[in-house]
Simulated assay, not measured.
Amino acid sequence: MYRQVELDKEDKDYHRLLWKDPNSEAIETYRMTRVTYGTASSSFHSIRPLRVLAEETTNTKLRLSLTTDMYVDNLLTGCEDSEAAEKLQDAIITLLVSAGFDIRKWVSSDSKLVLRLAATFRETEDEKSIESEDYAIKTLGIRWNPNPDQFGFTVELDKGAPFTKRQILSEVSRLFDPLGWLSPTTIQHKSFVQLLWMDKLSWDQPLSDPILQQYLRLRAQLKDLEKISLQRKVLKPATKSVFQLHVFCDASTTAYAAVVFIRQETDNVIETKMLTAKTRVAPIKSVCVPRLELCAALLGAKLVEAVTNAISDERFPTPKVFA
């Protein structure tokens, strides 16, 4: 993506480099003519063209996809039905090609949208894999099975490594859970890491037997996380539905947390699903529970604000918030 964006003529002088051929004593000066990954402004220079394209298009769905559903060079978007998705896919490809961007590695919960493309534009060229129930990819670090349209988790644990603070912190940090779906598990591991700091262990010092046994009990449960699957779709398409966001907060002397649920009522049928959650370990310095509950309330307020901002465009109905 970066190399597809040309630098302005005046900016090229700030991207000079010196080159010396091994067989020559002469030092030559070159200038980069395209955006280089690693400079401070690279991210802006690469994303700005997409923003300009979005601003210039009259297609509302296309504009919203490019402005709100792009994460650097990854696009995560969707439609209510296959026909609308096909039109959006064609519009995205056409617009981006006009600016020199070939969007590739297409994946969809509807395999027809992928198979209609040339093999080089798919995430995999194997057609059998695309239609398989076991086919899975990583979407911004989270495992996604397109055909059942479910999110899942992969847990990687080291075998034979000594249990030290360094090793445990390494394993805990691999529990990538940006939306907090695994909060009941991850908060226990965060609290345990805090316990290691309170015990004032060095990075490579072996754990005492009571602490080691406590971690082994927590660690034994991690593989069970791979059995969890969550439906990607949380809202059913309906013209007459009542949407609500419900925020719950709580605290203890160990931790505090907040969670947001979405509630949809359509034709007297009510469905409730968890959207996101946040957890925080309580400070090492003793704090009273009422103060921690205020911290939980603040965490919940920030969390629901982030959710409402994420669904604030015209593609989503405006929900009532109960907090």
Rank of each mutant, 00 (worst) to 15 (best):
Y135T: 04
I93N: 02
G300T: 12
T154F: 05
S43L: 09
L292T: 01
M274Y: 03
A26Y: 02
F316T: 07
V281P: 02
D224L: 13
K165M: 08
V321K: 09
I130E: 00
E156K: 09
K227C: 10
Q194K: 08
A257N: 01
K87W: 06
L7S: 00
C249M: 05
T94K: 14
K112N: 12
I262W: 01
A238N: 04
R315G: 05
L115F: 06
P237E: 05
R63V: 03
P22F: 02
K233E: 09
T68H: 09
T139L: 15
A306V: 00
A220W: 01
V35I: 02
L196G: 10
I142V: 13
N23P: 00
F248H: 09
T36W: 00
K87N: 14
D81K: 11
L17N: 13
L196N: 11
Q221H: 07
A91C: 04
Q205W: 01
V242I: 14
L216G: 04
L230H: 01
D69S: 05
S111Q: 12
Y135I: 05
V321N: 05
F151Q: 04
L62V: 08
R232T: 03
A306T: 08
G141D: 08
Q188A: 10
A136E: 12
L222N: 05
L18Q: 14
D126M: 01
D81F: 02
D90A: 13
F322M: 15
L294N: 07
L157D: 05
L196Q: 09
G180C: 11
Q264Y: 03
P317I: 11
K12P: 00
E28R: 14
T77W: 00
L75R: 04
P49L: 02
D204T: 10
L179Q: 03
L298T: 13
A54M: 06
L17I: 15
L64D: 06
V247G: 08
F261W: 10
L95A: 15
L222W: 07
S286R: 13
E131G: 02
P210A: 03
S252C: 06
D81P: 03
Y256V: 02
L207T: 05
T94M: 08
A238K: 02
S108D: 03
L245M: 02
N145A: 07
V281R: 04
R315I: 09
R217I: 11
L207I: 08
V52P: 06
Y135R: 07
P162G: 07
K320A: 14
W197C: 12
T253E: 12
V193Q: 06
R280K: 15
K273E: 07
E55H: 14
L196I: 10
K159N: 10
I130H: 00
E28K: 15
L117H: 06
E10K: 13
E133Y: 02
Y2H: 15
G100L: 13
T124M: 05
